[in-house]
Structure formats: C-alpha cells, structure tokens
Amino acid sequence: TPLSPSSALPPYFMKGSIIQLADGELKRVEDLRAEDFLQSADLSGELKIDSSTVERIDSSRTPDAVIIQFSVGEHKTQVCVEVLVEYPFFVFGQGWSSCCPHRTTQLLALSCARLSVGDVCISLTLKSLR
C-alpha cells in the first residue's frame, strides 16, 4: 500500500532554503550535490544512503499525485510511494528531479529535471541496530 501524499510540499524544497549538512556546513537546497548526502550519511553513523531505482510511475486516484515504485538497495526491496507530481527526488548524476518539473519550478522555484523510469534516486535507510 503506498504512503499517502501530504497536501503540500515541505518548506525545505523551496529554492534558497538553508540546509545543514552533518559536518555543520550550510548550503542552499539548489546547491546540494550527491557527495553532500553521501558524506553526511557517513558522518551520521546511523543512516545509510541507498540507491533507489525508479521502476514504475503510475497515475494515482488522488488528483495531482503519482504512485512511484522503487527498487531499493542491494536487496532490491520493492517500495511504492504516492507523492504529488511536483515532489522532488535527488537523482545521482542529475540532481533534483520530479514527475512534473514545470510545476516544481512554478511552486518552489527549484530547478528540476524530469524523473523517469530507470533513474537512480538517493534514499535513506537506518543502519541495523545491534
């Protein structure tokens, strides 16, 4: 069962939002790079970056939403999420990407590429607790 989308995007995706990396450095959301996420996860100790490949993008019964199926990590765990079409994901080698980049840019001023099947997104998992 996909997770339900919230009705609004969180404020930190707005262009110009200040993001604090794990080493304390501050960056604007639009300036983040894949390395920032990888290094921050390394420093955090309890979080691990996984590669999540987009397997399917389907329309949803919820207006302005899509259901995205990901294959996550080395175990290829299948995960479905329902998000608004403008919700941005960070894609390796491409940066911020959404199913409707025009709408993302309109609403958030965040420059976006189109999210497509085969794209590899950054996602998080908790490291196993001992």
Partner: peptide, 25 residues
C-alpha cells in the same frame, strides 16, 4: 524597529525519503 527574522535551517536528512524498511539480519 524591525525585528530580525531568523532564517530556518533544515537538517540534510529531511530532504531524503526513507524508502526501505530496516533489514533485520
């Protein structure tokens, strides 16, 4: 007098979705 407005700072991990359940070994 204009009060200075504090700029919100968001932690990096709020931008990344948790997509996978924790694997139990």
């Amino acid at each position: 007098n204009v009060e200075p407005r504090s700029v919100p700072v968001f932690p990096w991990h709020s931008l990344v979705p948790f997509l996978a359940p924790t694997q139990s070994d």
